[in-house]
Design a protein around this nucleic acid. Structure first.
Lengths: 198, 198
DNA sequence: GGAAAAAATTAAAGTAGTTTAACAAATCAC
DNA sequence: GTGATTTGTTAAACTACTTTAATTTTTTCC
């Protein structure tokens, strides 16, 4: 089983980090998923739509972002392989989304809709624990980010980003990194030159 | 029951919003709590300590903050009545805390330690759901804050804060509001004068 | 493979927010 | 209640970051 290679290996491994499922539960869980391919530059979600699914990324890279009154994009999160992505508020409340989610690379996700997730909670309550743990981790990461946004200069934020996500730099265009870090692409370019010259 | 007035009413009501407990479960839950009074300006937690408890505020006001390399304080969250507060990472990982938590007013909290919380999850699995819901809401609020920190000017952030927490302004010194919003107290004072003159 | 589009770089001028410092007002603690 | 401490205000000088715009480099895609 460890060496098999189905589209579900990654998600089962992700779940296995937190809870243990028996084969029936695995099968039931998998039966609730749908897979979807999002091509580069296509949207998984746009503001005003209702976010119908939570999405586990099997392969690829997504970004969740908003666009301000001046048309500038601000990235709330990136998602890569092994991450869960969605507009949680829209999903839970069945309310119009406030974020765009689009693909920076061709991306394969496994989706679970609200009805199926509720069914899953009911039939396999262990998943309450699983999603509690997932969201606890996300909460902690976000709190760190808030703290750094308050405490750090643009340069410090950039250096921390590179340290924390060393592989992101090869993968994500610099202007997207700037939109995540809360600075302009021009300023990030200047920072990088300055840092390179050290 | 609705009109009784024990120290536990508020927390039971808080829980009742999300899950339903039978009397045995209520009693068991309450048996796991300890109450603690934190006097104004005293610490509930300091960096380097391990955060031993999650804390429900019955009365009063706490702030969670960090101090940067220049000695400037940055507030990650405020907590008032009916909120849960702690350094979640330190609590979960039994790792030295990175935040201070202190009291802006004399504050009464109900505390549950990790061992008791684990016991609670085991004996009353519904609490997995409860804390999942609590943290989901906290996650959504934080994501909003990140988005606003990226998208908004200092003025917009202040106006949103006042709109979202109208009662906080009477209760929390202006310099603390500034430390939460990511601006200097001097600048917030200037903003307020400008806005008042409109 | 090559034209077109998107991303990155550079420089210069501009601005939102900071810093410092001095004073005024409010709050605290005895 | 009052002196001491903390908080808030104002103004002026300063700076981290933005804006604009022109140029170069890289990537896309038919």
């Amino acid at each position: 089983m460890l060496t098999s290679n189905t589209p579900f290996d990654l998600i089962l491994q992700n779940i296995g980090k937190h809870i243990t499922l028996d084969p029936t539960e695995v099968e039931f869980f998998i039966s609730l998923l749908e897979s979807k391919l999002i091509r580069r530059k296509d949207y998984l979600l746009q503001p005003g739509e209702i976010c119908k699914t939570e999405n586990f990324i099997v392969k690829g890279c997504l970004r969740t972002y908003s666009v301000d009154q001046d048309g500038v994009e601000h990235i709330v999160m990136f998602g890569i392989e092994d991450w869960w992505v969605g507009d949680l508020y829209s999903f839970l409340m069945a309310t119009p989304a406030q974020y765009y989610i689009d693909a920076l690379e061709d991306t394969l996700v496994l989706q679970i809709n609200k009805q199926n997730l509720d069914l899953l909670y009911e039939r396999v309550p262990k998943f309450e624990r699983f999603f509690r743990l997932i969201i606890q981790n996300a909460f902690i990461a976000q709190q760190n980010r808030i703290n750094q946004n308050l405490s750090f200069t643009a340069e410090q934020r950039y250096l921390e980003f590179v340290k924390k996500y060393p592989h992101f730099e090869q993968r994500i265009p610099q202007k997207q990194v700037a939109a995540y870090l809360g600075m302009t692409p021009v300023f990030l370019s200047m920072l990088r030159r300055k840092l390179a010259g050290k």
